[in-house]
Design a protein around this nucleic acid. Structure first.
Length: 335
DNA sequence: AAAGCTATTAGGGCATGGTA
DNA sequence: TACCATGCCCTAATAGCTTT
């Protein structure tokens, strides 16, 4: 309450308790805060100390980088074997085979973010059309208990090199978004919809995509950033994210499939990301990664001669490494 | 006089740790 | 295991002060 402006003890006690008898308690707490140099009093009014005011937002609402783990088949088994819960990014495309089949055993997920999964199965596209409708997709997400649902989008990073015009791709992406949003609104769950922004090779395209959404009256507290998962250009990633952050100052940003070396550059500007990197490292060369918090990098280790470890174990260990990276970045984010 | 403020006290709830 | 003492935190109540 004090963050909103100076207040008298009476105002604070009424606001906190709703009745004046709490006055004495509130007053003694205020005195305590005063002793700690967190607040001070001038006349009848209490004020927050200036330096406290500066860090207050990060105390009340700490910036946390949220990681959604992604993975299917073998990797999913690893996720199921972990002794704790964590946010999970589910790729809807993996559950489509003519119709949607509900996944079983998602107990490990503390929350579920459903993604269109176009990257994995764009080869099934009929032209620019998803094989399933917005309604089928949203119903599927609702049935499996999704907390967040990404709009169906066109992965321009894949489709543009195959001849899709950028402007046409953006328009189609937003059309999909509008469909999803309208149906979700009918179900009363539009707050779960995460509109996904697309682009190809310049940040202006993502901003244009945002404008298109806004033209259609689409608002959201969380925005998704797509089309960045294949790029090798950290410069592009960082310019897209920074410009969107400027444009959507108060909103949450989720980046799909962010490369970890790019994450290092942009973690301060985003709220969440997802990765399945831990799967590939373990599969590709049996490497285990260890986060080096001083140099903000992964050290890549392989077993000594004569030692071999199974992929599942390596995956589990790499998940731990990713978590330790996120934990470390979160410290930096609030420092 | 009324409103605002300060200091003190009593007692409930709860965790802890000792004892029978 | 049951019981009790202790200390801590919290809240309510209130006496008595100062400011408006």
């Amino acid at each position: 309450m004090l963050a909103e402006g100076p207040k008298t003890t009476k105002q604070l006690s009424l606001g906190l308790k709703g009745r004046p008898s709490g006055y004495a308690q509130i007053y003694s707490y205020l005195r305590l805060l005063q002793d700690c140099r967190l607040i001070y009093k001038k006349g009848k009014l209490w004020y927050i100390e200036d330096d406290v005011k500066k860090i207050l937002p990060s105390i009340l609402d700490p910036k946390t980088l949220k990681l959604y783990l992604a993975g299917t088949s073998t990797a999913l088994k690893v996720l199921q074997s972990l002794p704790f819960q964590f946010p999970y990014l589910l790729s809807a495309g993996h559950y489509w085979n003519g119709k949607f089949r509900l996944p079983r055993e998602l107990k490990f997920a503390s929350e579920i973010f459903v993604d269109s999964g176009a990257q994995q199965f764009y080869r099934y596209f009929n032209g620019l059309d998803y094989p399933y409708s917005a309604i089928e997709y949203v119903d599927f997400a609702v049935n499996l208990g999704a907390n967040l649902i990404a709009t169906l989008d066109l992965p321009l990073d894949i489709l543009t090199p195959r001849g899709l015009d950028v402007k046409a791709g953006l328009k189609k992406t937003v059309d999909y978004g509008v469909n999803i949003y309208e149906y979700a609104e009918k179900l009363g769950i539009s707050n779960k919809v995460v509109p996904v922004l697309q682009g190809f090779d310049d940040a202006s395209q993502w901003l244009e995509c945002l404008d298109l959404y806004k033209d259609h009256g689409i608002q959201s507290d969380i925005w998704g950033i797509g089309s960045l998962c294949m790029t090798k250009s950290i410069k592009l990633v960082s310019s897209v994210i920074q410009q969107l952050r400027n444009e959507l100052e108060e909103k949450k940003l989720h980046v799909f499939g962010l490369a970890l070396n790019a994450l290092k550059k942009v973690f301060k500007f985003i709220d969440s990301f997802d990765t399945s990197a831990w799967v590939y490292w373990a599969k590709m060369d049996g490497a285990v990664f260890v986060w080096d918090p001083l140099r903000k990098r992964f050290i890549q280790l392989q077993a000594r001669d004569g030692k071999r470890y199974d992929t599942l174990s390596l995956m589990r260990i790499n998940i731990q490494a990713i978590f330790s990276m996120v934990e470390d970045l979160n410290i930096c984010k609030n420092a």
